[in-house]
Measured scan of single mutants.
Amino acid sequence: DRHTIHIGDITIHLEGFSEEELKLAEELIKRGIHLEEVKRILEELYR
Rank of each mutant, 00 (worst) to 15 (best):
K39Q: 11
L22Q: 08
S18F: 06
K23E: 09
H34K: 14
L42N: 00
L24G: 01
T11K: 06
L35F: 11
K30R: 15
G8A: 11
E44S: 01
G8R: 01
R31F: 13
G16H: 09
L14W: 05
H3G: 12
I29M: 04
T4P: 14
L22R: 09
E19N: 08
R31H: 06
H34F: 11
I10H: 11
I41F: 09
E20G: 05
E27D: 09
R47T: 15
E36Q: 07
E19H: 12
E43P: 00
R40A: 12
H6G: 09
L24T: 14
K39C: 12
K23L: 10
R40L: 08
I12W: 08
A25G: 05
G16D: 04
H13N: 07
E21V: 13
E37I: 08
E20M: 07
R31G: 09
I7M: 11
F17R: 03
K30P: 00
R31K: 11
E15F: 15
G8Y: 08
L45G: 02
I5K: 00
V38T: 00
H3A: 05
D1Q: 01
I7R: 03
Y46N: 10
L24N: 03
K23F: 09
D1V: 01
I41P: 00
K39A: 09
L45W: 08
R31L: 15
E36D: 10
F17Q: 02
E21C: 07
H3Q: 02
T4M: 04
K23H: 12
H34V: 10
R40M: 09
Y46E: 08
L45M: 03
L35V: 08
R47K: 15
K30Q: 10
I41Q: 05
R2F: 14
G32I: 15
R47H: 15
H13M: 13
R31Y: 13
L42T: 00
D1F: 01
T11I: 13
D1M: 00
I7P: 05
E19M: 14
D9L: 13
E19L: 13
D9A: 14
L45N: 02
T11F: 13
I7F: 10
K30A: 12
E37L: 09
E15M: 12
T4K: 01
R31P: 05
E20A: 09
E44C: 04
F17E: 03
L28N: 00
E43D: 13
E37N: 02
S18P: 07
H13V: 06
G32W: 14
E21S: 06
F17W: 11
E20C: 13
R31I: 07
F17M: 06
E43Y: 14
I33E: 05
E15T: 13
E19P: 07
H34N: 12
E44W: 09
H3I: 11
I33M: 11
E15L: 11
E20H: 03
K23A: 07
H34R: 10
G8K: 06
K39P: 01
H3Y: 09
Y46I: 15
E19R: 05
E19A: 11
I7G: 05
H13E: 10
G16V: 12
L42S: 00
I5C: 02
S18Q: 09
E21H: 11
F17L: 07
L42F: 03
I12G: 04
E19V: 12
K30S: 10
L14N: 01
R2Q: 14
I29K: 01
I5D: 06
G8W: 09
V38P: 00
L22F: 10
E15N: 11
E36T: 08
I12K: 05
T4G: 06
L35K: 04
E26K: 10
D1Y: 01
L22V: 10
T4N: 10
E15D: 11
I10M: 12
A25Q: 01
I41C: 04
L22W: 10
L22D: 01
E36R: 04
L42R: 00
E15G: 10
V38S: 00
R40G: 03
F17N: 03
T4L: 06
F17I: 06
V38E: 00
I12M: 09
I7S: 11
L45F: 06
G16A: 07
V38H: 00
H13Q: 12
I29S: 02
Y46A: 10
E43M: 05
R2W: 12
I7D: 08
E44F: 08
E27W: 14
H3K: 01
D9T: 06
L42P: 00
I7E: 07
L35P: 14
I10Y: 09
L35G: 04
E26I: 14
L14Y: 04
H6E: 11
V38G: 00
G8Q: 06
H13K: 11
E44Y: 07
I33S: 04
H6K: 10
K30C: 06
I29T: 04
I12C: 02
Y46V: 09
A25L: 13
I5S: 05
I29Q: 01
K39N: 05
R47P: 15
T11N: 02
I12A: 09
A25K: 02
D9E: 13
R2L: 13
E27M: 12
H13R: 09
E37D: 14
E26P: 01
E26M: 11
E19W: 14
E37V: 12
H34G: 14
I33P: 02
E44G: 01
E43T: 03
G32S: 03
H3T: 09
Y46T: 02
K39I: 15
L22N: 04
K30W: 10
H6Y: 05
E26Y: 15
Y46M: 10
G8N: 11
G16K: 05
H3C: 02
R47I: 15
H6L: 11
E15Y: 15
R2I: 13
L45S: 03
A25I: 15
D1C: 02
G16Q: 06
E20V: 06
T4H: 08
I41N: 01
L28K: 00
A25W: 10
I41V: 09
L35I: 13
L28G: 00
R40N: 05
H6I: 09
E44L: 05
I33D: 04
G16C: 04
H6M: 13
E26R: 11
E37Q: 05
E36P: 08
E20P: 06
R2H: 12
S18T: 13
L42C: 01
E36N: 07
I7K: 05
I10T: 13
E36G: 06
K30I: 10
Y46R: 15
R31V: 11
E21T: 10
R40I: 06
G16T: 11
F17G: 08
G32P: 04
G16W: 08
I29H: 02
E26D: 08
L42G: 00
I33A: 06
G32C: 07
D1G: 03
D9G: 11
T11G: 08
K39Y: 14
S18M: 06
G8L: 10
I41Y: 06
I10R: 03
H13Y: 12
H3S: 04
G8E: 08
G32T: 04
R47E: 15
I10W: 10
I12P: 02
G32N: 03
I5M: 07
I10A: 02
L24I: 12
R40P: 00
G8V: 08
I33Y: 11
E37C: 02
E44N: 02
I12T: 04
I29Y: 04
L14G: 03
E20K: 08
L28I: 02
E20N: 06
H13P: 04
G8S: 08
I10L: 13
I33C: 06
L45P: 00
I33N: 03
E37W: 11
Y46W: 08
R47W: 15
Y46S: 04
E19F: 13
L35W: 14
V38C: 01
R47L: 15
E37P: 00
A25S: 02
I10Q: 13
T11C: 05
E15H: 12
L42K: 00
E26A: 10
I7C: 02
I29D: 00
K23P: 02
E19I: 12
I29P: 00
D9V: 12
R40S: 07
V38Y: 01
E15P: 13
E26N: 07
H34P: 14
I5W: 01
I10D: 08
L24R: 03
E27A: 10
F17A: 06
E44V: 04
L35S: 03
H3F: 14
E26S: 10
R2T: 14
R2E: 13
L14E: 01
D9W: 13
I41T: 02
I10E: 08
I7N: 07
G32R: 00
H3W: 14
R40F: 02
E37H: 04
L24Y: 14
E27Y: 13
D9M: 11
I7H: 09
E27K: 09
I7Q: 06
D9I: 10
H6T: 14
L28V: 02
L28A: 02
T11A: 10
I7A: 10
R40Y: 05
K23W: 12
A25H: 01
D1I: 04
I12R: 02
E20S: 07
H34C: 04
G16R: 07
E15C: 13
A25M: 11
H34M: 08
I41H: 02
L14A: 04
S18K: 07
Y46D: 07
A25D: 00
H34A: 14
K30N: 13
I33G: 02
S18R: 07
E43W: 15
I33F: 11
E19K: 11
I5E: 06
H6Q: 14
R31C: 15
H6A: 12
I5N: 03
Y46C: 15
E15S: 12
S18Y: 05
L42M: 06
E43Q: 03
I29W: 03
H34Q: 13
I12E: 03
I5P: 04
V38W: 05
I33T: 09
E15K: 10
R31Q: 14
I41K: 03
K23I: 05
E44D: 12
H13A: 07
S18G: 11
V38I: 12
E26T: 11
E27S: 10
E37F: 06
I5A: 01
L14T: 04
L22I: 12
L24F: 11
Y46F: 15
E27P: 01
I41A: 05
E43K: 02
V38Q: 00
R40W: 08
E37A: 06
D1W: 00
